[in-house]
Amino acid sequence: MTTICVDQPATGLRAWAASVTMAATVFTVVTAEMLPVGVLTPMSESLHTTEGVAGLALTATGVTSAIAAPVLPLLLGRLDRRAVLGGLMVLLAVSSFAAAVTPFYSIFMLARVLMGVTIGGVWLLTVSLARRVVPENAAGPATSLIFSGIGIASVLGIPAGAYVGELAGWRWAFAGVGLLSLGLTVALSIFLPNLAPERPVRLCDVREVLQVKQVRVGVILVALIVTGHFAAYTYVRPLVEPHTGPALIGTLLLAYGVAGVVGNFLTGALRPFRALTVIAAGIALTALAMPVLGTTLAGSLVLLVIWGFAYGGTSVSTQAWAHAAAPSAPESSSAVLVGVYNGSIALGAFTGGQVADQLGTTTVTWLPAVLATAALVVLLANRVQRG
């Protein structure tokens, strides 16, 4: 198939402005996706449903983005990726405003489905386009900067949503995401260069990359770690609120997010095998300790910091695993991993919700304990992947 010529990347300040804008875009979609975590209790009360059912807001975005990530590249064809990113941010703005104003749970969930399309598309495009917005010698730092949007969303976005929800109501948190999305639509059109596709992705490309054993191992690891994490993290507010009070939820989530950024840089500097071993072990140990040590404010704070540090490097480490497993097919392997990642968010939120509603919120921590331990077993059985 003929390779499509693309414009040269920008240089100097414009190139880094493009990288910062893409990092802010990632920050916004991750904040939108995780926003229910910080406002779950008041959101469920306002929508007249249980916390477990309200937690399906993450399932809706996760399922949709899991489908959108591998399917969108097949549908976009030769469309300029800059225009696609702008369109996705407009869609995020519309869906955020709809979630902010609707009194109906069904319409709220429809808005979350539309958010899922944006999340899947933005995750995939920013991963594959990072190296194209800056000169080749700056591709590594630019990629790290763009990925930092994920960690910063945990540090600022989710706690900010919790604070706004506490001060003005959870709906204003969603409205704020909508306003930020509109601003980024303009910024993307200004700072990004033309980004025509280098080569349209074909369905056979995705099939071929799945034939690589270590890609399949990466899929299993993502499914176990991310499903386990979100089975409990989705319900972290009702999990710790009885021991801390609602006023401190934002502060605890901020501590979790700061630890996540530190973990992102420290575990991200390790080889994928070692990084994922640290991540899986940290999540398993924290989950086991939570019912025993997380019954006080101090205990909850310490465990959330350890939890955040452990999970913080997951996105970078799983993408590094995918690149090491299939270096000649970065977009296809990223599409697969991003799809599984977001599908695992959905599965984790759904499973945790069922356990929370049937057995009580305090029981959800056994899910990450079991699944993260299973991930450790998979890692030990596949030591060959040390790249």
Rank of each mutant, 00 (worst) to 15 (best):
3 T>D: 13
11 T>Y: 07
15 A>L: 08
19 S>P: 00
20 V>H: 07
27 F>V: 07
28 T>N: 02
31 T>N: 06
34 M>H: 11
35 L>Y: 03
36 P>Y: 02
38 G>T: 02
38 G>V: 05
41 T>S: 14
44 S>E: 12
46 S>C: 10
47 L>G: 03
48 H>W: 09
60 A>L: 02
61 T>Y: 01
63 V>N: 09
64 T>P: 03
66 A>L: 12
66 A>H: 10
68 A>M: 14
73 P>C: 03
78 R>S: 01
80 D>G: 07
84 V>S: 04
91 L>R: 07
93 A>I: 00
102 T>L: 03
108 F>I: 04
111 A>R: 02
116 G>T: 00
120 G>Q: 00
121 G>F: 07
130 A>T: 03
132 R>T: 05
138 A>F: 12
144 S>G: 09
148 S>W: 08
149 G>I: 03
154 S>R: 06
158 I>T: 08
161 G>S: 11
162 A>C: 07
167 L>W: 10
167 L>I: 14
175 A>S: 06
177 V>W: 05
178 G>F: 05
179 L>C: 13
183 G>S: 01
184 L>W: 06
185 T>M: 13
187 A>P: 08
191 F>V: 14
193 P>N: 05
198 E>K: 02
204 C>N: 14
206 V>F: 10
214 Q>V: 13
217 V>D: 01
219 V>L: 11
226 V>N: 08
227 T>C: 11
229 H>L: 03
238 P>M: 10
240 V>D: 03
243 H>V: 12
250 G>K: 04
250 G>M: 05
253 L>F: 10
253 L>M: 10
259 A>Q: 06
266 L>G: 09
267 T>N: 14
269 A>T: 10
270 L>K: 12
271 R>Q: 13
275 A>F: 07
276 L>M: 09
281 A>S: 15
284 A>E: 08
285 L>T: 15
286 T>C: 15
287 A>L: 03
290 M>L: 09
291 P>H: 01
293 L>F: 15
298 A>T: 15
304 L>S: 07
307 W>D: 02
308 G>V: 02
311 Y>L: 14
314 T>V: 15
324 A>Q: 09
330 P>H: 00
331 E>T: 05
332 S>N: 04
338 V>F: 11
342 N>H: 15
343 G>V: 08
344 S>C: 12
344 S>M: 07
349 A>L: 10
362 T>D: 12
365 T>W: 01
369 A>V: 00
373 T>E: 01
373 T>H: 08
379 L>W: 02
380 L>Q: 14
382 N>E: 02
